[in-house]
């Protein structure tokens, strides 16, 4: 086995990559092309096998002309942008705390940030059902005990529950890239700024923030794409009636078995998602270039 790997591995040629390229062609390229074609077809499915497939533009035109789809995708984009902004607001201070901490505290922060990433998203979402849920939920009990509210608030199964839960679940994805860029830069730069008489806030504003831009870009891309495409959090915290693009595709595929509609929805999801990745990357690169030119950092 090792011998085979070694023969594959030690060449300078293309061929060690051949198996992976073939694998990805069969399991990614061809399925994505099929996905596109399914959006243009009328499909009859029986027991998970396609019985017939006829060319039609009906689904595509119907969906593109349907206001429900427009609203659903708008809701998804709004939600994901809000989650991204909240993750930045709550995540940046954690990375700053990390930059200012000693070895032991740094380790503790890394464990607190990485451990949730290794835990199932369903488990982390479940925790929020317990915290936000009905009358016995922790938040409602605390607010009632403090006398701040008279009757329990309805948080679970609303937009707010999805927003809160998604922000917490995706927070590590913003913090890790920020920590990576902040620590990569020379600490000397930071110290020089302090020696020149800059206060810590001025150093933050003129040194640390500008140099974090690429990290913000990476983190925002990760948080946005996951928030935009996950159905777990909205399904569990939004109840059955919270509809965004991902839950719509999920329901079309799993519950109502409308495969043609599901194909169009997920194609739109993929295209818009890649558009936003491009937009975020462009924004981050342009800002970085602008900062260099202006000499802010």
């Amino acid at each position: 086995m090792l011998d085979i790997i070694a023969r594959f591995a030690n060449g300078r040629g293309f061929w060690p990559a051949i198996p992976a390229v073939a694998f990805l062609t069969v399991l990614m390229v061809i399925p994505l092309v099929l996905l596109l074609s399914f959006g243009f077809s009328d499909i009859v499915v029986s027991r998970g096998v396609i019985v017939s497939q006829d060319f039609t533009l009906d689904h595509l035109t119907k969906i593109l002309g349907d206001r429900l789809y427009l609203l659903t995708f708008q809701r998804s984009i709004n939600l994901s942008l809000s989650v991204t902004a909240l993750c930045l607001i709550f995540g940046f201070p954690v990375a700053y705390l990390y930059l200012r901490s000693g070895t032991f505290a740094r380790r503790a922060i890394l464990i607190a940030v990485i451990a949730p990433l290794l835990t199932s998203g369903i488990v982390r979402t479940y925790a929020w059902i317990v915290i936000l849920g009905g009358q016995r939920g922790i938040v409602n009990r605390a607010l009632l005990d403090l006398g701040l509210i008279e009757a329990p608030l309805r948080i679970l199964n609303t937009h707010w529950a999805v927003l809160i839960g998604m922000t917490q679940v995706h927070l590590p994805l913003m913090i890790l890239p920020l920590i990576a860029v902040m620590t990569r830069h020379d600490k000397a730069l930071d110290e020089a700024s302090a020696n020149l008489g800059a206060s810590r806030l001025q150093t933050l504003r003129h040194v640390i923030l500008p140099m974090s831009v690429p990290g913000i870009g990476t983190g925002a891309t990760l948080v946005f794409t996951l928030s935009y495409t996950t159905f777990v959090v909205p399904q569990l915290l939004g109840g059955g009636n919270y509809l965004n693009a991902a839950t719509m595709a999920f329901e079309q595929m799993v519950y109502s078995l409308e495969w043609s509609k599901g194909a169009v929805t997920s194609t739109l999801l993929l295209v818009t998602c890649i558009f936003f990745i491009g937009l975020f990357t462009w924004a981050s690169q342009t800002t970085t270039r602008w900062i260099r030119q202006e000499g802010v950092a």
Partner: peptide, 24 residues
């Protein structure tokens, strides 16, 4: 670029696409 591209494809989209390919 090619081998790292799948990282940009959302799981839900890939899952649905492979289900379609399998059904075909």
């Amino acid at each position: 670029v090619f081998v790292l591209f799948p990282h940009m494809v959302p799981g839900i989209v890939l899952g649905i696409a492979i289900l379609f390919a399998g059904a075909t």
